[in-house]
Write a protein that binds this DNA or RNA. Structure first.
Lengths: 171, 171
DNA sequence: TTCGATATATATCTATATGATATATCGGTA
DNA sequence: TACCGATATATCATATAGATATATATCGAA
């Protein structure tokens, strides 16, 4: 969490709200953040001296903009450079259902798989749109990779489930 | 959480400890459970009447075996039949690092990708072993699919990252 | 021009989950 | 018999999502 926020703040100073939007768009497929974690983490990062906040006021609105500090940049680079076992967590509820599908009639399973494939297609479509819009705004090839990964991942999921559908229908 | 535990208890009555082991082996790739969630959930399920517990005692050891009830079976089937948007969460820390890798020297990025591909291969190897051992114990084709999915997923991840490595090395 | 919908912005609460740790028993082996 | 690893239950601290509350700003349509 902490390092991802530092990373985004290294691109430009932002408010918690802007941070949430940016996280959702750019790495949202495999890393998401809620306000319930963003705001407390920002306060903690400021205590540590990794970011500093500036309270601007547009009219009557309170607006706290956070910027990364020199110390924060160093921490970010240390995290990027460190080759630890990276966290990889996949929670795929559909697969849990599939595991127990032996209890259910084949027709129902077929419909579940078909619907899932459609949903995967829709998600993939959204990412393809995002990719087109990203082309202009990205300062860096590396910032395109997660979106490209997401598109390829959904393609893989669609393919795997299409093959599953074929197998289930065949008996 | 709740429904996954009900599912496993529909296969056979079990203790919380056995449940944890079984979850880790069978759906562990995309759904995991800790004791801190298993025991409280079992107690809640019993309050709801979806499972009933029996306190057996082997010698001096306390051993609480949980079995699914008729009501629990109905709840499980209702969950399996219901076509809702299923939870899909991927937390892929490596991809977050990649997003910010523009800050780092190419050599370091190449090493990160290489190491990651090796780790993916190791994980895939474990699943292939598991698949071989599963052949005997599974009562059902559906119980094989999650493991097969895991193997295919790691293959996809290896392929995607190998292609990424090629691209990064080329400039 | 005013009304309502949507976007911006911060903050906090509840429920739940993880990971670690504590405690204790059991079976096998050295 | 002493010890290790597996079995078994339980709980703590910490983290997080998701929902909700509150308020302001913007913009288009009636």
């Amino acid at each position: 969490m902490k390092y991802a926020l530092l990373g985004f703040l290294s691109l430009q100073p932002m408010t918690g709200y802007e941070l949430k939007k940016m996280v959702s768009i750019s790495t949202g497929q495999f890393y998401s953040a809620s306000y319930g974690s963003i705001y407390p983490t920002l306060r903690k990062l400021e205590q540590e001296g990794a970011v500093k906040s500036e309270e601007g006021n547009e009219g009557n609105r309170v607006k706290i903009t956070y910027a990364i500090t020199e110390k924060g940049e160093q921490e970010l680079d240390a995290w990027l450079a460190q080759q630890g076992e990276e966290d990889f967590v996949l929670r795929y509820e559909y697969m849990t259902k599939l595991f127990f599908s032996g209890r259910r009639p084949t027709g129902e399973i077929v419909r579940m798989i078909q619907k899932h494939i459609e949903e995967l297609g829709a998600e993939r479509g959204k990412l393809i749109e995002l990719h087109a819009s990203l082309d202009e705004s990205c300062s860096d090839v590396y910032q395109m990779y997660p979106c490209e990964f997401g598109i390829a991942l959904y393609q893989f999921l669609q393919d795997w489930n299409s093959e599953l559908l074929r197998r289930v229908e065949q008996n």
